[in-house]
Design a binder for these strands. Sequence first.
DNA 1: GTGGTCTAGACCACA
DNA 2: GTGGTCTAGACCACA
Lengths: 133, 133, 133, 133
Amino acid sequence: MGLITIDYRDRKLIYEQLIDNVKMLVLRGDLKKNDFLPSVRTLAKELGINPNTIQKAYAELERQGIIASLSGRGSIVILDGSEIASAGKESLRAEMTILASKARTLHMTREEFLECAAAIWQAAEPDTGKETE
Amino acid sequence: MGLITIDYRDRKLIYEQLIDNVKMLVLRGDLKKNDFLPSVRTLAKELGINPNTIQKAYAELERQGIIASLSGRGSIVILDGSEIASAGKESLRAEMTILASKARTLHMTREEFLECAAAIWQAAEPDTGKETE
Amino acid sequence: MGLITIDYRDRKLIYEQLIDNVKMLVLRGDLKKNDFLPSVRTLAKELGINPNTIQKAYAELERQGIIASLSGRGSIVILDGSEIASAGKESLRAEMTILASKARTLHMTREEFLECAAAIWQAAEPDTGKETE
Amino acid sequence: MGLITIDYRDRKLIYEQLIDNVKMLVLRGDLKKNDFLPSVRTLAKELGINPNTIQKAYAELERQGIIASLSGRGSIVILDGSEIASAGKESLRAEMTILASKARTLHMTREEFLECAAAIWQAAEPDTGKETE
DNA sequence: GTGGTCTAGACCACA
DNA sequence: GTGGTCTAGACCACA
């Protein structure tokens, strides 16, 4: 029922799933700036996991400046989707930089690298031609 | 002294360092097809690390089809640099696929994504025009 | 509507926000010596927060000698702005003392410390030369 | 006996004491770049506190870029004292900025503020004239 | 041996 | 009710 779920078959750690889950909800607009997250205890009970694990995820989200934990009041979203998106693009650039350096190690040319990026984007296109159903 | 070294301050796991190290040596031609790797014991002594860790790395390299262990005679390289390079490109494509899906999550367009790849390649260009050595 | 407001998104505890709020009002002259504060119940209803929290803030203000609660008649301001200001300066000196000891731990010299204070004052100057109002 | 101690009478949280303790040791040169910290378990036993609490402190130190936790190998210092000192000065400037804004709220002049800083530095001087015993 | 994750549950201050 | 800290202890992968 709740917006936040965990997948035990996923190899990602539970607290990382929680973090990604919240980020995604903010990115999609399902959680907006000033919305409250479910309380640590509520969510722990709902998901059947330990409150400490929720706590760890919320603490990391707070450290990343995405939520604020207000003692005695709950945890509130303090960034909106577009702000998260620009942070996300920043980190994507960092990962792209690592990929580029790997590509050089493999003696790939600029053309090969860009062709690879283009081909993959195309292949992953969920729907070519007309957008959304 | 040897070709293989490890960096204790590197965050990478030691067995991953060993794997990357061997791959790099083959890629650069410092190790060629049919060359023998140092024996587990020799290398463990030389690097001052646990033989189990070397064993684990060699096992993974064997699993990846890069070396073969000839019982009683040591481990031998069975791929040459260009063959490793194409395997490397394959794994790079896999990582690029993950990046592309992240980019979509962030609502990036195809143009933004490719522009990002191009800009980063350019920026990392060690030296445009003539090569220093 | 009232003079006292709270900001739920502020990381400060609510009772601290209330205390700072009242101090600020007295400092600015919006509340003068012998003025009554809103009653605990009134304020709690107006701000939509727990009366215990208001109570806690008023108790602390009383402890600090800024207000007095007259049983059955409410709470009254017993200091004027300039008296609060000198108390404020006292606490600022205490915080400056902590900063100075940190600075020493960092091996800063007297000159570095004072230069830092001066530079920051300058930088924060809202408007140099003529004062807007 | 160990370099790291905790003080139960201190109102600071245990994990904060641990963090400050390690920073101080690096700042003083008692721990140098590439030195290993005591292992989580060893230190927990030595101090008689829960390994999770040590773990929390080490995780925060790692997040701050002061140490690196090498899985299976222990935790190593990766910054030297001077690097910590410059980070410390940065945070001191931030705190000074807050103080300056408080001072303005109290209608202090630039001269009062700087005089306060100077007087406090003088007062806290551990030994005026000749240095060290 | 090492660090990292997670559970279970106590206890605290704040609202 | 809320979040934050801490203990006790299991379990995992890596060295």
